[in-house]
Design a protein around this nucleic acid. Structure first.
Lengths: 128, 128
DNA sequence: CTCCATCGTTTACACACGTAATCGACTACG
DNA sequence: CGTAGTCGATTACGTGTGTAAACGATGGAG
């Protein structure tokens, strides 16, 4: 049987927090991940372990044995995740077109002076 | 007791489909909503009714009796929904800053020529 | 009046998610 | 050697979501 395309399963919000830790630095043990996220989110180590297992089944992180424990590393790049999530939103809310999103952000004052300047710079680059 | 701010409950993806119908035209009966969405999503009328009830409890749609049935209308504006959803994404993925989102869309070729032109125009307006 | 179609309401049920306690294996300390 | 700590794995449990069937009221067709 031909290997299925195996479309990447969705990463939930809590799981993302774990991914962020791994994207920042990896490989990490469950302990180390907990040191990064348990404080801010008020989680227990067990919670982190559960999330890590789920991420492993979702093929989003890889494990590598290290003595009696595991080291975890992200299997998908942050840029990839960010890409699909952004595209999903743009599709869901703006019919797949990015300009309306931009317009909306502008209108709702979600853009700082700085953002505008940066975007302008990016635009200039795009046109070159 | 002071009336709580009553922070608007989250609207799920399936519920959004129902909202879209109502944003397009309202008020509608459950039947009419189904005519709009049941086809594309492969839903039964019952499903639509369930979603409508949930939206009513979530205070996202209002009902108005019309003989023996109800007419449903959105209670929150689409712009409002779109706003909170966009902001949520920008917060979750880009630390609340919009420029990186734009950069990402640009880099991943999610921006058409047209998008870029439109954004440029918007920028020009913003600066005036 | 009786019965059927149609409403909205109630109940159902499987799966995802958030959050964790518990379990069984193993190791290091005493 | 026993035992306490630590690992990952298993199980748990409440809530939200997707999807719908079942139920009860009711109004219109005969």
């Amino acid at each position: 049987m031909a290997a299925k395309p195996d479309q990447p399963e969705r990463i939930s919000e809590a799981e993302q927090a774990v991914m962020e830790a791994l994207w920042q630095r990896s490989p990490l043990t469950a302990q180390e991940v907990c040191e990064e996220v348990c404080g801010p989110r008020g989680w227990s180590l067990n919670t982190v372990k559960t999330l890590l297992s789920r991420l492993v089944t979702k093929q989003a992180v890889a494990t590598e044995p290290d003595g009696k424990r595991f080291l975890y590393s992200p299997k998908i790049a942050r840029a990839e995740y960010v890409g699909t999530e952004s595209r999903r939103l743009v599709d869901r809310l703006f019919g797949g077109r990015a300009a309306p999103l931009f317009a909306h952000l502008a209108q709702s004052d979600a853009l700082t002076e700085n953002d505008i300047a940066e975007i302008e710079a990016l635009l200039k680059e795009l046109k070159s």
